[in-house]
Design a protein around this nucleic acid. Structure first.
Lengths: 290, 290
DNA sequence: GCGAGCCGATAACCGCGAGGTATGACAGCC
DNA sequence: GGCTGTCATACCTCGCGGTTATCGGCTCGC
């Protein structure tokens, strides 16, 4: 199995249109068409159901799309990690969403610096939920990230668990109360599978309003357009005139984890994980693999 | 990053000799040499420390070797899984070492057949510890395997936990006893990290005597050359005149797990895992990911 | 119901780069 | 000091991945 045909296949599978896929790959469509046919022949399987005006994935194609993505990610990761390992002064790259460190970054780095296996650390700031991709593609060695996220190919360990607050417009009726319950908030989330629901809820807001970061999100809160649950640690970082924060004791807490690529067994990464893990309160901490 | 240079790199890294690597790849050495140099240039990193008579991996090379192996495995897996998914009647492939199913195979398959999402199952017999590779390279969808094994890229769930017996030559002094303790056996294994030690111990025997399966191993036992710990379930499967089995209550039990590739979320695989997992005794069962 | 417009497949051609052979440079060994 | 074994270089060839041009067929609009 070669990588190029798989890359081409992924492009077509994502576009479901040969012409657009070819453009995206910066080639013309004939070689793309040919390559896909050759791939199908090699696998002995039809990957696309084509009529003249529609392209659809077959069952085998659907399987291949998922597999190909992870394989190509692994390929990229191999190159990136080797490059970094050979750089004159290899640095450990720690990916963090801005202000997504629960205020623990300094403590983690300080503890890490005291470890014998420590190396210089470069902090890489990234956007909402970008961390898994960065780890999988070898652009980062470790990441601080809030649960839940897709653990595929990653190992993770809990760093800290924080209470939740709700961000409300100052004029909101509930703002008068000292603390509020989940039921008061009437969010479109169900209790049992809650963390995932909250994720989806945030995704919807991100889609709908196009917000890219916390300041923008809080602006919407101030305008009274939305309310949202946040980890306690953001309260002191984002004082906003029109926004009040209230504890939600019965909301599932926010879990911050440190994650790293599963096959990475480098002493430096291990030391960083140890440093972050040692901050966790003993009973709350646990390892989750996968 | 392309797959071909990586394949070449792995060959050289494993042979540590360009000529032999070229032969293994069925090419001549100049294009190999060139490709490696090009790869080094692309990564901006030297992968091998070469003198005229020795080739050694650099730090970056060591990192790349590990990463490349997993990436190439993923590539193979993509092809194999797509091929199987597209075959006229896709079958679920379950890898098992012969007699490594603790006698549960029939029960698992029967339960599975009752599941709504069940598909035909093909059992693939394999050798000692081959299962992880089969899963990673896409040759199997699930595997029954004894802990411990390398969980990288795999998820696993405990199926059953069995007591250990020791296989002794009939003439062995301890054969007179009804049950023996670990201390009596004087095996070169330490208690706390035991399962791994047992694995290493078996590996050593396999290396030293060239045994490939249980009958051969039991022959050595009958001859009095070795003693070995086994799961209880093999006792009734391998009655041997010169061999007696005795319980070892204080030995760590043998844990049989069902494992599957981490990214595999196919309903059929999930149903098989469910079927196998439902046989586990509730308190012994747990999911281990990674 | 028919023509215009898209879209994927095919054909013919081209150039790069992967592969081969021959040779060189160099170190260690009898 | 030749001999052997190693990796690198030089040079040639040819296949394959790339392009442009063209075809064939479905869909949609009027």
């Amino acid at each position: 199995m070669e990588s190029r045909p798989l890359r081409y296949f992924v492009a077509v599978a994502e576009e479901l249109n040969f012409a657009r896929a070819a453009e995206r790959l910066s080639i013309s469509s004939p070689p793309l068409s040919r390559t896909i046919r050759k791939l199908e022949a090699e696998l002995g399987v039809t990957l696309f159901e084509r009529t003249t005006h529609t392209v659809a994935l077959t069952q085998a194609g659907t399987v291949l799309l998922a597999e190909a993505r992870t394989a190509l990610d692994a390929l990229e990761a191999a190159g990136r990690r080797a490059r970094r390992a050979g750089s004159p002064e290899p640095k450990l790259v720690l990916a963090v969403k801005a202000d997504g460190d629960a205020g623990l970054m300094e403590a983690i780095l300080a503890r890490y610096a005291a470890e014998p296996a420590s190396e210089p650390v470069a902090v890489r700031l990234c956007g909402w939920g970008e961390q898994p991709r960065l780890l999988r593609q070898g652009e980062a060695d470790a990441a601080l990230i809030h649960e839940p996220f897709d653990h595929t190919g990653l190992d993770a360990e809990t760093v800290t668990v924080e209470p939740r607050v709700v961000a409300l417009a100052a004029a909101h009726p509930l703002a008068a109360r000292d603390r509020v319950s989940l039921a008061d908030l009437d969010l479109p989330v169900s209790e049992p599978t809650y963390p995932g629901d909250l994720h989806r809820y945030l995704d919807k807001i991100v889609d709908e309003y196009g917000v890219r970061d916390l300041p923008q999100l809080l602006k919407l809160v101030a305008l009274g357009d939305i309310i949202t649950l946040l980890p306690e640690s953001v309260v002191s970082l984002y004082p906003r005139p029109g926004v009040v924060y209230r504890y939600v004791p019965d909301a599932p807490p926010a879990t911050l984890a440190i994650a790293w690529p599963q096959q990475s067994r480098s002493p430096a990464t291990a030391a960083l994980v140890r440093a972050a893990g040692s901050l966790a309160d003993p009973e709350g901490a646990h390892v989750r693999r996968g």
